[in-house]
Amino acid sequence: MLGDLLGSVAALAAGAVIYWTGWTPIDPLLSVLVALIILRSGWYVVKASSHILLEGAPPEVDSREIGPDLVANVSGVEDVHHVHVWAITQERSMVTLHASIEQPTAVDEVVRNIKQRLAERFGLDHATVEVECEGCADAAAEASHGH
């Protein structure tokens, strides 16, 4: 929409310059300028949508900070690993992670506290938390497959 507005303003400006001065190169010069502005804004749209479609991590979240932050700030969490963060839309991100907890009886409370901390500190309102009480099942599976 801004491109259309700029195109109209450029056409009016070019018309006024040509009418008052007779200098006709102003029309293609302003047309190229408007085209460059439209290309630039189009590039940002393509870049942002590609990042989301390729499930890239949101730039405002450093996934390396999540594990240490949860261990330091959520009671009962001993370790956090297999952290994956990606953007679903420009406004919504998602995280999955494994959390080793101290007491298996406090699972619901710990998961609730993890999700609350993720939302408050990192703006991640959609989280899937796999709770581990006796080691990581993925690590055991990887070891048995020789990875």
Rank of each mutant, 00 (worst) to 15 (best):
M1F: 13
L2K: 12
D4I: 09
L6S: 07
A11F: 10
A11V: 08
L12W: 07
A14S: 15
G15S: 14
A16V: 10
V17K: 05
V17H: 03
I18K: 08
T21Q: 05
G22E: 05
L30T: 02
S31A: 08
L33R: 13
V34H: 00
I38F: 07
I38W: 01
L39F: 01
R40L: 14
W43Q: 15
Y44S: 14
V46F: 12
S49Y: 02
H51L: 05
L53I: 12
L53P: 14
E55S: 15
G56Q: 10
A57N: 11
P58G: 08
S63Q: 11
R64M: 13
E65G: 07
P68W: 03
D69L: 14
L70A: 01
G76N: 01
V77Y: 01
H81R: 06
H81K: 03
H82C: 07
H82Q: 04
E91V: 11
R92V: 15
M94R: 04
I101T: 01
I101W: 04
A106C: 03
D108G: 11
E109S: 15
V110F: 02
N113T: 13
K115Q: 12
Q116I: 09
Q116D: 10
Q116E: 10
L118T: 10
L118I: 09
A119S: 13
R121L: 07
R121Y: 04
F122H: 06
D125A: 12
D125I: 15
H126N: 08
V129P: 00
V129F: 00
E130I: 04
E130L: 07
V131W: 00
V131K: 06
V131P: 00
E132H: 06
C133D: 13
G135W: 06
G135L: 02
G135I: 10
C136P: 05
D138G: 14
D138Q: 15
A139M: 08
E142K: 02
A143H: 08
